[in-house]
Design a protein around this nucleic acid. Structure first.
Lengths: 230, 230
DNA sequence: CGGTGATTTGAATACGTTCAAAACTCGTGG
DNA sequence: CCACGAGTTTTGAACGTATTCAAATCACCG
């Protein structure tokens, strides 16, 4: 399931000193932050990147593909806390252990950084620390919007808002292929797969979107926008 | 409704240069951060501290009392994103405008800081920036736990988890007076006031807690803990 | 002690869930 | 290129939890 890259040692790579050797492919942690260079790595569909409770050694940046992070209750109920698309950072924890499980939705390429070195960089440079702060704050904003969705929105509103969000993050073309299953969508929106499916059907009947094949959707922005409004 | 302090000009104070004069009462932003001194201020029960969309000029730290922050949909549905008790910081935004509304639950004393000067301090000092990062990260963790609660937990689980959380933050005595109304609890847990009330009754019948008067509760930690488990 | 707002309780309803089965997709191999 | 088959998605029907609407009770302040 793992990629065939010679650099890999799944499931938990140790970049060590190889980071500098990877400079050609390496991508900086932040736009203007050339000294922190990551090691490329990749994961196969449904592959676990790290599990809840594991030592949080690395930080990850998506290059290609998509990742989900989630939490689970002991009886299996699952809440996806976020989908991470190219350019997004994930896996950063304050404590020693990961507080989520992260899995690749599809064949996914990332670059990884040692958490320790990022933290050291933050301690030395106010600029780096501010970027990390900004990142956490932006994730917080996102989480709070999602709290409003989970706590107070109806099924149609959740699904419509979700589709608009995905469209946005995928380039606002209005037409895209959902990178996740119905189960993932349901576990992200606090619904069941059946409700997600029924709601999609309803939105299509209302002319808010068109479906061609299981995952492909085209939004009628004006119509679907009216569903969310409030 | 505002306090009778001579320093006040409700609802939106301008501390300006008075900050240094307030040193005697002033409380630093962080434990080891003596150069950022706030101006004391207070608000009456149900008084708005700032509104969503307003210019985010200040940052607040609760000294006494309690504050709620929330978001509202145009039709009035409300989601409380957090309760802030003594010691907690709130009102920090990344952008120019507040993304929530903040209100005092009861007579509340805070110290306020100019956002600009905190930001300037962060730019200068990696240590301050790291503290702010840590704060945002901790809020994020909290928000993500709450997402799991809102998305996947039943009414009893939500109420039980809520009571245990309040107990924790109020000193783990097991006995306390809820500082908020049923409506606040409902809007925090994504339920209705009726459901919160019924659930409280049910928990009492199950022997998980005792109620003496509207807001006073005593938890049977072992019993109520079993409700949340998962 | 009265009055107002908060809380609780009751009954009917609705929305989303659950369980079950059919239909569709898409990758694989013939 | 088509057929197969596993997994995913859709649809259907019954059910359950939480909501809604309504009214009674309670708590607290003056």
């Amino acid at each position: 399931m793992a990629s065939d890259s010679a650099l890999q040692t799944p499931p938990h790579p140790v970049p060590g000193l190889r980071a500098s050797a990877a400079t050609s492919q390496g991508i900086g942690l932040f736009p203007g932050c050339p000294d922190l260079v990551g090691t490329p790595f990749s994961y196969g569909r449904e592959e676990e990147i790290y599990g809840e409770g594991e030592q949080a050694e690395f930080v990850y940046k998506v290059v290609e593909g998509a990742v989900r992070t989630h939490k689970v209750l002991s009886d299996g109920r699952r809440q996806i806390t976020g989908f991470h698309l190219p350019g997004d950072l994930f896996g950063f924890e304050q404590g020693e252990a990961h507080r989520h499980t992260a899995e690749a939705l599809s064949e996914t390429r990332v670059v990884i950084f040692m958490r320790r070195s990022v933290e050291r960089a933050a301690l030395r440079s106010a600029e780096v620390a501010c970027q990390l702060w900004g990142m956490a704050a932006s994730n917080l904003r996102y989480a709070q919007d999602h709290m409003l969705l989970l706590g107070r929105r109806s099924a149609v509103e959740r699904v419509a808002a979700f589709l608009m969000d995905v469209d946005e993050r995928l380039g606002r073309t209005g037409t895209f292929v959902l990178p996740m299953t119905r189960r993932d969508i349901a576990d992200y929106l606090g619904l069941t797969i059946e409700t997600v499916s029924r709601t999609l059907t309803q939105l299509e009947e209302d002319g808010a979107l068109l479906r061609t094949g299981g995952r492909q959707v085209s939004l009628r922005r004006s119509r679907i926008g009216r569903v969310v409004e409030a």
